[in-house]
Design a protein around this nucleic acid. Structure first.
Lengths: 218, 218
DNA sequence: CTGTGTGAACATCTTCACAGCT
DNA sequence: AGCTGTGAAGATGTTCACACAG
């Protein structure tokens, strides 16, 4: 399949073809009228715009179950991410290989960041250690942090933080589940105006969308 | 602090107070004019609406690093989730306790689901096993699935799936990181119209937002 | 003729601003 | 006098529909 139309792509993605065309148009005019988009060229352009063509060295701090799971996660390499180092505070972990990469001790954090030119850090420590690790990462030059610890991190201006809270995803499922169950059947007495107004679209797609609750500022 | 105003809550959440009030109003009129919202009552009403007051038994299938990390995750209990069972295909895992819960074998999946009245399942298996596990969960009565395996699952109408792709979060960080780096400096020759139009707001808040890319339909 | 690229129409979401309750 | 609850205005996002390139 050398070429693909906006109609086909839209159907595959479950969106309107006009939206897809308009979105693509913000990246430039990469389609051919009457023909469609050249698949290879389009993939390249989107990859480049998203930063997939670059090499992003990342460090993972906190090699517990979650840290180990992340280190083993196959999806990173194909998206340009390279696990440059694994860091843990437990001296007993030092030197032990996880996913083929030897764990290093927290003492060397600053050196590791600088030696590898790391600008993206992943925090998978317990909540109590997260802010301190974050401060050290930032001081060492990291400007983007993916935080799995259940804490809101304080960072200076210019540093990006994304917090992943695994229970929020479950929360969203449970919310819809509750709604399925209560469909018309048992009208809960103590809820005056909740009926129609809150009954928004229950999106049928997989993955995070606008349904996420309000979040904390940086 | 027995009472709180929309202004205070909005400041804490980093949003406009009018938006907060309007959002609350969809749940009913739980505030008092001239006073604010009664904290305890508000918490209860929101908790109930979100389903936090219910008990949600969940099963986790696939007890590798990620499954174990999820089983140990502290945030679940406080949000009404109870890990009812851990299931793995490896017979060697059977009986072994993870997070204090003995792992059970996949053979008993259907019985476990039914005995515990589970309607939410978490898939943390390798990609190859995910669809099969999914089919069995659905057949056994599960109607909501949180999928960590890097596959898009096929499910019948009426079943909700949320896919968590850990690399997408990194992707979003890398995208902003790239943008920080390329600020004005090096105008990449091969990008005609990408400049201003695509330079949207770089949100300063932590956590998933509308920046996620288009997703697959069910 | 076919399918992109895009103004214009339409829809949804956010913020303003103020009437009205406490 | 203070703060909610909400119509109306404004901003943003999506879809339509068609001129025009290939």
């Amino acid at each position: 399949m050398p070429t693909v139309s906006s109609e086909e792509l839209a159907a595959a993605a479950g969106v309107n073809s006009a939206k897809l065309r308009k979105d693509f148009s913000y990246l430039g005019s990469y389609g051919t009228r009457g023909v469609g988009y050249d698949v290879e060229y389009l993939v390249y352009q989107i990859s480049r715009e998203l930063g997939l063509t670059q090499d992003w060295p990342v460090v993972i701090v906190g090699i517990g179950n979650l840290g180990a799971a992340l280190a083993n996660y196959g999806g990173f390499a194909s998206r340009g991410f390279r696990v440059a180092a694994l860091i843990d505070a437990d001296p007993a972990m030092a030197g032990k290989p996880v996913a083929g990469i030897p764990v290093q001790h927290t003492d060397d954090l600053e050196r590791i960041i600088q030696d590898n030119g790391v600008s993206i850090g992943v925090i998978a420590t317990p909540a109590g250690a997260a802010q301190q690790v974050c401060d050290r990462l930032v001081a060492a030059g990291v400007t983007s942090i993916l935080n799995f610890a259940p804490t809101v991190l304080n960072v200076p201006e210019g540093v990006d933080v994304r917090k992943v809270d695994l229970s929020i995803e479950l929360q969203i499922l449970a919310f819809h589940e509750q709604r399925k169950a209560g469909e018309e059947a048992a009208a809960d007495g103590a809820l005056p105006a909740a009926g129609s107004a809150a009954a928004r679209k229950a999106s049928a797609d997989q993955g995070p969308d606008g349904a996420a609750p309000a979040v904390m500022p940086a």
